[in-house]
Design a binder for these strands. Structure first.
Length: 895
RNA sequence: UGGGAUAUAGCUCAGUUGGUUAGAGCGCUACCUUGACAUGGUAGAGGUCUCCGGUUCGAGUCCGGAUAUCCCAACCA
């Protein structure tokens, strides 16, 4: 294989790993802390350190890589800052599962040993996700790789915590929170998934303590009656006027509780009377606070009932207790009715277990103040969502935002920097580990056992990764970052919290634009998940089809903010596209054998006299695609950009240009060949540059073999746009391009006649082209050779026709220009077939003309439509009439 | 219950501010190993743009309503 040749077959696996390590070695992805170039920064949403790459990452990263590579090629000091997340719950669960295999629990190991065990796990497996990101081609600056538990990140976390605590925006309090009995930890509201569950409503009779009667309450959770502290009715409900103020003898529990009036109660629902369990229901909690009711917590951390309930129920799980309570009520004759009922139940988004509302002491972030500027920057447009429709979602959520429960009863994560004094009971909150109580000086202090919600450290990610709280050069250069790319599923979890934290601690937005993309679904539109078995592994897809094909598939399907369905057929299609590119390059390089590179390199222009129409055409089309891609990328329309290049590469460059130039390359005119070679080399170079952000590997591999190239690598090449490519693009010509488009239409018309009449592709035929003017006649004459070779003609006559006897005729119209393509069929085909074909196209034309005519006959149209639209219509009518005339003539001669 | 979307070819989706004959990819049919590529080439079939109204000379596009599907949030004693 000579150095300027490519192997017969594209082998993505070999090429991709080789090129990626080379890029990395060369440091092409590195950004500068200080630079004269304008900064462009994207912060990678840190994937779970113990996870593996899934399709969501593949999409998210492909978008970011396109953006970053494009900006890097456009002259920016582009930084894509990578990192991984410690993912408290997920990672701890994985390691606990490992331990269970050894019949151990984390408690057996103890906190310190367990933490060490997780670190070991991280050291061992934490690099897998990074390796997989490299397989995809992510052009991150890996020297800056951060982990959410890195020392400097921890410092940032503590500083933020202390600062908010001192402002009173972080507080500790006993609240009703979401509790996962399986994790034995608190959860934030966002970590609770509500699912519709089929259950029952039990109607239970509660007797009055004075024996004067009873009332019936309805509940979906009878077991919680053991924690009831009141029964509430609507204060104006006539049925219960006499009950308010009386006491109930609470069955099974043996306590007395009051009947209270509260307007929260819906008179229409259930029995109109509600049992109140403030420690285990969010609404009841509110009512409990309003009426200063006692709160009886009946549940242990693991979800079983505690000593606050009668002995018979202690130790039972909620489910077991429910059965027993119902059974006991039935025995006591207090169960009035059981109805089927579907209601939504909170489930732990991690474990899937049912979440219990539980009264518990936890840490919270007060969000009311933080939310105000976070809303304002979005309202004012300082921070933009792309697509814009997510703005509303964001603002709506920010207006109903609740305080954020940030403490987790886990061991893996940032431990809360608060120490409780055994002597005075006060808390010391400090950035550095204190040795004594800040209130009484006692040395008997104990650090809080809890760790912070993983999203707490994620909220600081845009500045903690850049060195904050130190005023690093990187922070100065890259904050605020430019674009955040993420899925709409974590707008609240992450995006909103980053905005609040960024504004509070860096006094500026963390990023200018949030690009929201959809989620990947399977071909049927279902969510991909391991449990339902429909998840596809992007690494497998990369191994089979190459990273480029996968990236292009995802990007080309990207519809603004909408979920996208992944189909293997589509991937196959784009793998074929990669193959097409590869072979086009192979052919081009062979056509460039013996080509002498002009010393002007990329700026070299061909001799004007030698430039063919096809050359001017392809350069003109290149200019169009460069413009379209530039515009699409500027406005985040990645799919439009990808598809524009696809169309140019396949249907203009390959289908037509390479076919046009074959006779020139194999021909004898040296001057023409030289000019075409130069154009070919230049166009191929630019095509590789255009395509590179989307498909970095194959383009780099080809680029390395190009005779004309300016840089060592495409990564650091410039991105072609009509602005910076102006001189070269002047080789193209719109008028000539128009002529070539006419030639393409003529060739297609001849091929159509051949195809429809089943004329063998190999059979050489004669065609006559009848131009409507001398100008068009010259235009066709100039391109006669192209037409002959592309349409496989033996004879190509151009000029007026003397006889249409037994001829197929197709009128060809491009713009305002018309040519009749005439192919004599005598002896070639069954004339009946041709009559059918002609009739079909006549029918179509008649339909068109009648539509057009009725429009032109409408006075209102003539009056109201813009002049050029009317003019256009009239010109078209004339065209149609002429075309119909030609077809009628030929039909007459066929018979 | 509230908010947000979507409805265009068999499938997945484009269709900018209303303006000729509504496009692409995949799939399908026919023909073809012509010198980069059969992961290819050429040609073709296939659409009452969900339905009903309205605005307009003109609606896939704008407005109202209906239906269906999806997502998010809240709530359902």
């Amino acid at each position: 294989m000579s150095p300027n040749q490519l192997s017969d077959r594209y082998n993505p696996e070999e090429v991709e790993t080789r090129l990626y390590s080379w890029w990395e070695e060369q440091g092409f992805f590195k950004a500068e802390d200080v630079s004269t170039r304008p900064p462009f920064c994207v912060i990678l949403p840190p994937p779970n350190v113990t996870g593996s790459l899934h399709m969501g990452h593949a999409l998210d990263h492909s978008i970011q890589d396109v953006l970053v590579r494009w900006k890097r090629m456009s002259g920016y000091n582009a930084l894509w800052l990578p990192g991984t997340d410690h993912a408290g719950i997920a990672t701890q669960s994985v390691v606990e599962r490992e331990l269970r295999k050894e019949k151990l629990s984390r408690q057996d190991l103890g906190r310190e040993a367990f933490e060490q065990r997780v670190w070991q796990w991280k050291e061992q497996y934490g690099s897998r996700i990074v390796e997989q990101m490299k397989r995809l081609g992510d052009s991150c600056d890996w020297d800056r790789l951060k982990f959410t538990l890195d020392k400097d990140v921890s410092k940032a976390v503590r500083k933020v915590f202390v600062s908010l605590y001192q402002k009173g925006w972080i507080y500790k309090g006993t609240r009703l929170i979401n509790w996962s009995p399986q994790l034995e930890s608190a959860l934030s509201d966002l970590e609770v998934e509500h699912r519709e569950v089929k259950g029952h409503i039990w109607h239970i009779r509660y007797p009055l303590a004075d024996g004067s009667g009873s009332l019936v309450v309805a509940t979906t959770r009878p077991e919680t009656m053991l924690g009831d502290v009141a029964v509430a009715v609507h204060p104006e409900d006539p049925r219960f006027q006499d009950f308010i103020g009386k006491e109930i003898e609470l069955p099974l529990a043996g306590r007395r509780i009051p009947v209270i009036g509260d307007t929260y109660v819906d008179r229409e629902f259930g029995s109109g009377a509600v049992k109140i369990t403030p420690a285990h229901d969010f609404n009841d909690y509110e009512i409990g606070q309003r009426h200063q009711l006692e709160m009886i917590n009946i549940m242990e951390r693991n979800g079983t009932l505690n000593e606050s309930v009668p002995e018979a129920y202690r130790g039972l799980t909620a489910g077991q207790a429910r059965n027993k309570v119902v059974e006991d009520l039935e025995k006591a004759g207090l169960l009035v009715e059981v109805e089927a009922h579907t209601h939504s139940v909170g489930h732990c988004s991690r474990t899937g277990c049912v979440v219990e509302p539980l009264l518990s002491e936890q840490w919270f972030v007060k969000t009311s103040e933080l939310a105000v500027p976070a809303k304002r920057v979005v309202e004012s447009g300082t921070l933009r969502f792309e697509p814009e429709t997510w703005t509303k979602t964001y603002l709506h959520w920010m207006s109903i935002i609740q305080d954020w429960c940030i403490s987790r009863q886990l061991w893996w994560g940032h431990r809360i920097p608060a120490w409780k004094c055994e002597d005075c009971g006060q808390l010391s909150v400090s950035e550095v580990d204190p040795t004594q109580c800040s209130h009484c000086g006692s040395q008997k202090i104990q650090q809080d056992e809890d760790v912070l919600d993983t999203w707490f450290s994620s909220a600081l990610w845009p500045f903690s990764t850049l060195g904050w709280p130190q005023e690093t050069e990187a922070l100065k250069t890259f904050y605020p970052t430019n674009v955040l790319v993420t899925g709409h599923d974590i707008i609240f979890f992450w995006v909103a919290r980053m905005i609040m934290a960024g504004l509070e601690f860096c006094k500026d937005v963390p990023f200018r634009t949030v690009y929201i993309h959809g989620l990947i679904r399977d071909a049927q539109g279902l969510k991909m998940s391991k449990s339902s078995g429909n998840a596809v592994d992007p690494v497998e897809l990369i191994e089979k089809n190459g990273a480029d094909a996968l990236r292009f598939t995802l990007i080309s399907q990207l519809a603004a903010g909408r979920d996208l369905k992944f189909s293997p057929q589509r991937l196959e299609g784009y793998r074929n596209f990669m193959n097409k590119i590869w072979n086009a390059a192979r052919f081009s390089l062979s056509a460039l054998e013996g080509f002498e590179v002009p010393k002007e390199g990329l700026e070299a222009l061909p001799q004007k006299a030698d430039v063919s129409a096809a050359d001017q055409w392809i350069v003109y089309k290149l200019g169009l695609v460069e413009g379209a891609v530039d515009e699409a990328l500027q406005s985040y329309r990645f799919a439009d950009a990808a598809n524009a290049i696809y169309n140019f590469a396949w249907h203009e460059f390959c289908d037509w240009y390479l076919e046009f130039i074959k006779p020139v390359i194999y021909g004898s005119s040296e001057g023409e060949k030289k000019a075409t070679q130069l154009v070919l080399a230049q166009v191929l170079n630019r095509l590789m540059r255009l395509l590179h952000p989307f498909t970095p590997f194959i383009t780099e591999e080809i680029y390395q073999k190009l005779p004309i190239k300016a840089k060592e690598s495409l990564v650091v090449e410039s991105f072609p746009t009509p602005r910076n490519d102006k001189q070269w693009l002047s080789v193209g010509s719109e008028e000539v391009a128009f002529a070539v488009d006419l030639v393409r239409e003529v060739v297609t018309a001849i091929r159509n006649i051949r195809g429809e009449n089943r004329i063998k592709p190999g059979e050489k035929i004669t065609a006559r082209l009848v131009p409507e003017s001398a100008q068009v006649q010259k235009l066709l004459g100039d391109n006669r050779h192209s037409i002959m070779s592309l349409a496989k003609l033996e004879v190509c006559e151009i000029g007026p026709v003397d006889s249409l006897s037994k001829c197929a005729v197709t009128p060809v119209v491009v713009g305002e220009v018309r040519v009749d393509v005439v192919v004599p069929l005598e002896g070639l085909v069954d004339i009946a077939e041709e009559i059918k074909r002609t009739k079909k196209s006549l029918e179509k034309k008649h339909k068109e003309i009648s539509q057009l005519q009725s429009r032109l006959n409408n006075d209102n149209f003539i009056k109201n439509a813009p002049e050029e639209v009317v003019e256009q219509g009239r010109a078209q009518l004339d065209q149609l009439k002429a075309q119909i005339q030609s077809l009628e003539d030929s039909l007459a001669r066929l018979r």
